[in-house]
Amino acid sequence: MSRLNEENLRIARQIISAYPKKKSALIPLLHLAQEQNGLVTNEAMTHIAELVDVTPAEVLGTCSFYEMFKRHPVGEYQINICHGISCHLLGAEDVLEHAESSLGVKEGEITQDGKFSFEGVECIAACTEAPCLQVNYRYINKVNADEFDQLIDDLRNETKTEIPKHGTLANTRQKIPANKAAGPAQVEESSRPIWLKRNKEE
């Protein structure tokens, strides 16, 4: 199933309601679709287009701009090996080479069991922990060849359960209790906020 399922549709509507304009929810909804299907399908993009009132082409335009959205299958575990300058200086290319030989696939390919794919990525903000990588956006710091192989074993044996399957990003979502919500600041709302009124701002 490629369109958003009922539960995700409910979440999608909640996400949309937080923004003054529907289209702002586009990226969060693409994440939601990717979480559901492991990738972003054309059907999901069409569904999202309906939800935020744009054309599917506009959804694709946005979706294809961002690296995290995969429109072709990746492994259950997508390994992003950082090759930013700090990691480069400390052996990122060796990690990449090792990944290729250890997994037996080239960058961008998926292992036969569908479990793994890897690619070199730009800086992931863990520069003092170089060389580092992310598996489904979970950090592994100061990685060497042995640790890499251990990581693969753990993932293959499903003993590293803190890492979700590809698509799931954060395990916690923001939830705004209905009675606590200030509500989106509508673009048409043109009056001075109430807490400034007292004090005559400016």
Binding site: V54, T55, A57, E58, L60, G61, S64, F65
Partner: peptide
């Protein structure tokens, strides 16, 4: 108002 062609990729 027919945004059916778009820039795609980056």
């Amino acid at each position: 108002g027919d945004p059916l062609i778009q820039f795609i990729d980056r």
